[in-house]
Amino acid sequence: MIDTTSSKVSRAIQAKRDAGSGAVIGYLPVGFPTLSTSIEAAVTLAGNGIDVLELGLPYSDPVMDGPVIQAATQRALAEGFRVRELFPAVREIVSQTDIPVVVMTYWNPVSQYGAQRFADDLAAAGGAGLITPDLIPDEATEWMTAAERADLDRIFLAAPSSSEERLRQAVEASRGFVYTVSTMGITGARSDVDAAASTLVERLRAVGVDNACVGLGISTAQQVREVLEYADGAIIGSAFVRALAEGGVERLAEVASDLASGSRVS
């Protein structure tokens, strides 16, 4: 496993583990509903119990995102969001929070921007790393090199369909955590988090994972508690995006506080 001592994300997860719980990772797209509001919303998550921020980079073909997130990212693009605006947004969020900020993006925008330039600009803005959902480790040499030079976390995905070899590759290539996909298919809140998630975490443990964080489908504090019984982190996306869309930052704060309560030690 890659050394994680310089990883802000690993340290945040370890702090929650030392406290007897796990981390809550909160996702929001940058630029939704406006750039300024998305910055305020991210800071709001950080102030209401979220341990790691995951900022989505709007993309024109978000094949893994569910309808709630797709609608939000498409609105951000319609409002004129551009990749170059990500970095000052990250800088502003980092200046107002003390939790790690990672970016989730499909590979094409990074490739178009330039992998090393992207890594350097993200690091300069205070970002902690990158989640690349459509990039597999054996095709990620360019990004691995760029991220290592910039001292950024590299977060790859593991799915229930992944072979043992693919899981091992994800574990060896990742720094920060392995994004553990709880269900097959697109993102979106579900009434039950798939039981396949716990099995997948067990498989990742068997090949040496340090931090396995489960995403796709978590929408209640009870689900957070259930996931943190076997995983190191619970990733929440659609529930936060919906709250922001329907009730603004005030509603987002309420939902974040509620869901974060699932990580509290009783």
Rank of each mutant, 00 (worst) to 15 (best):
L200D: 05
L152C: 02
I25N: 03
G129N: 05
A158Q: 00
V110M: 15
A234Y: 09
E165K: 14
S266M: 10
G185D: 00
L35Y: 13
A245N: 13
D98M: 05
P67R: 08
Q116M: 13
A125D: 10
G127F: 00
E40N: 03
L252H: 11
A170M: 04
T97W: 02
D65L: 07
C213Q: 01
V90D: 02
A125H: 11
I93P: 01
I99F: 10
D3R: 13
M144G: 08
G248M: 03
Q169F: 02
A150I: 08
G22I: 05
P133V: 06
A195I: 00
P100F: 08
Y59A: 04
R251S: 04
T4F: 10
A170G: 00
S191M: 08
A206K: 14
K16F: 05
T132C: 13
A72D: 05
L167C: 12
A234Q: 13
A123I: 09
G129E: 09
N108G: 06
A212G: 12
L53Q: 03
G208K: 06
L244G: 02
S6I: 09
L130Q: 12
L122V: 04
S163T: 15
A158N: 06
P33T: 01
G26C: 07
S263L: 08
T180M: 07
G80P: 03
A173M: 05
E254K: 07
I2S: 15
V102R: 03
S257E: 14
P33H: 05
A221T: 02
T105H: 00
S7D: 11
V209Y: 13
W143H: 09
S111P: 03
M64E: 11
T180G: 03
E40T: 14
L167Y: 11
S191Y: 03
V110D: 00
T220K: 10
S6Y: 07
L228C: 08
L152A: 02
A119M: 02
T34C: 06
R175M: 10
V207P: 02
A170P: 09
L216E: 09
S257P: 08
G126W: 08
P133E: 12
E226I: 01
R242M: 09
T73D: 12
A23Q: 06
